[in-house]
Every structure is written in C-alpha cells, then in structure tokens.
C-alpha cells in the first residue's frame, strides 16, 4: 500500500444508540490503521465520509457530503463490513466507484 486514505468521521447525535459508536470507530481505527486515517468530517482534503449512527434510522443529514463517497455504519456488524469494504477497495486501488 502506498498511502493511507483520509476519511472524515461524522457521528449522529447518539440519543439512544444500540451499540457503542465511539468504540466502533476505535475498532475501525485499529483494524484499518495501515490503510485509513480517520479525521473529522470538517477536515480538509478528505476522500470520503464515514457516517456512524446509533441505529438504522440514521438521522444524519447527508446533503453536505453529496459530492463525496459516503459509507453509513448503523451497527457493529456494519463496522466489520466496512473493514472488508476498505480491504476490497485497496485491492482495486482506490475509493472511486465505491460510492
């Protein structure tokens, strides 16, 4: 791998989350430490946005991110699926085409 992807993290507000959202992102940071740099969704030069919501309602407004790849994680299982997605994308060499 030549470089790490720079992905912004956007959480829902967490009114009644059904799993640990922050812990799920900590898990992703660890699992993807060699391939992804997770930063704030407001950071510059991000290549995509990971939206982490506490339940499938996923009430986050996605319109500010319409020009970028967006992944939505609504459960711990989704977080595990995101690891697989990134690994597959790495083999394909890029985020584009995976929106």
């Amino acid at each position: 791998m030549s470089r790490r992807y720079r992905i912004g993290v956007k959480y829902c507000g967490g009114c009644s989350p059904r799993y640990g959202r922050v812990q799920a992102v900590a898990y992703l940071r660890e699992e993807l430490r060699d391939s992804v740099e997770f930063v704030s969704y407001e950071a510059s030069d991000i290549e995509g946005v990971l939206v982490v919501t506490g339940c499938p309602t996923a009430c986050v407004d996605l319109t500010p991110f319409k020009d970028r790849p967006v992944w939505v994680v609504t459960s711990r299982k989704d977080a595990e699926g995101f690891v697989e997605t990134i690994n597959i994308m790495e083999k394909r060499n890029g985020l584009e085409g995976n929106i």
Partner: peptide, 8 residues
C-alpha cells in the same frame, strides 16, 4: 464532542 454535536 463529535459523537454528540449533531444533536447539540
């Protein structure tokens, strides 16, 4: 806090 700001 990033995990709460969407509501607050």
């Amino acid at each position: 806090y990033p995990e709460y700001e969407d509501l607050l």
